[in-house]
Design a protein around this nucleic acid. Structure first.
Lengths: 131, 131
DNA sequence: ATGAGGCTTACAGTTACAGGAAGGTCAAGC
DNA sequence: GCTTGACCTTCCTGTAACTGTAAGCCTCAT
């Protein structure tokens, strides 16, 4: 299979697949006699795995760790669980941070008339020096 | 005031202040005879404004727009409100996305024993091809 | 006068790719 | 046999918003 088809079935752009190869996340693909990348079933499964993990927000580094665990028949599931838990904790932190920012800004928006007059509690708050 | 003190009172690292100058977000600061940056009260207020807006998640571009509105005595507050609302909508999208990823992963974690055995529903799910 | 700490510029590195240029390959149609 | 268009190749640049590092002035206190 050539990279274009692999891109379709894996859900990853061809550009991204080449990128993953270039940074060593995946093994260099085989080549046809004319130099095109040629993918096997196993490669495609790996790329789907990566796509799924990335879509759940794992970083490239985390995906790399997950791939190693996946390819290690003797790994303990506890390691995977631990990695996943840390990732969930990261997400929780980010969600809380975003939520807090959003709440603050939403409050300011409510106070702002939003008409033609220049007085705006949002800007006034931003300019507040005693905070 | 020199950049170090400005960094302290504004809450922005000196490095970041120089960066903001380099990209044109703020005017080039005045200089002492020996070449050090010298800041006025107005500059410091601007930097505090930027710090506050950034801490609420506005991008540099958005901050730039907010600064123009702030410095425009004739702007209508409606524009500011609109910008802020869009930003809140962005945050809502991001929160929802993170929450959804988190829920999915949390479900998988619950199903995982997390012991010494290699069988792991998390990895199995990632490797699932029929999704 | 010398040492510590603050300031200067400039360049590289970070994350995870996307865009584009210049050129090779392949299957189909005339 | 030749062209055309889609697909492939590598290489380089750009993105957001900084942070780190190096090499070298400036300032102040001892």
């Amino acid at each position: 299979m050539k990279i274009g088809q692999v891109a379709e079935v894996s859900g990853l752009p061809a550009k991204t697949i080449r990128y993953y190869e270039s940074i060593g996340l995946i093994e260099p693909a085989g080549r046809t006699s004319s130099g095109y990348r040629a993918y096997q079933e196993k490669d495609i499964e790996t790329l789907k795995f990566i796509q799924r993990a990335r879509s759940l927000g794992f970083s490239i580094n985390e995906v790399s760790a997950l791939l190693m665990l996946w390819n290690d028949r003797n790994r303990a599931s506890a390691q995977v669980k631990e990695l996943a838990k840390q990732h969930v904790a990261d997400m929780d932190r980010k969600i809380a941070e975003l939520q807090s920012m959003k709440d603050t800004l939403s409050n300011l928006i409510e106070k702002c008339q939003g008409d033609h007059r220049p007085d705006c509690p949002i800007l006034n708050d931003f300019a507040q020096t005693d905070r």
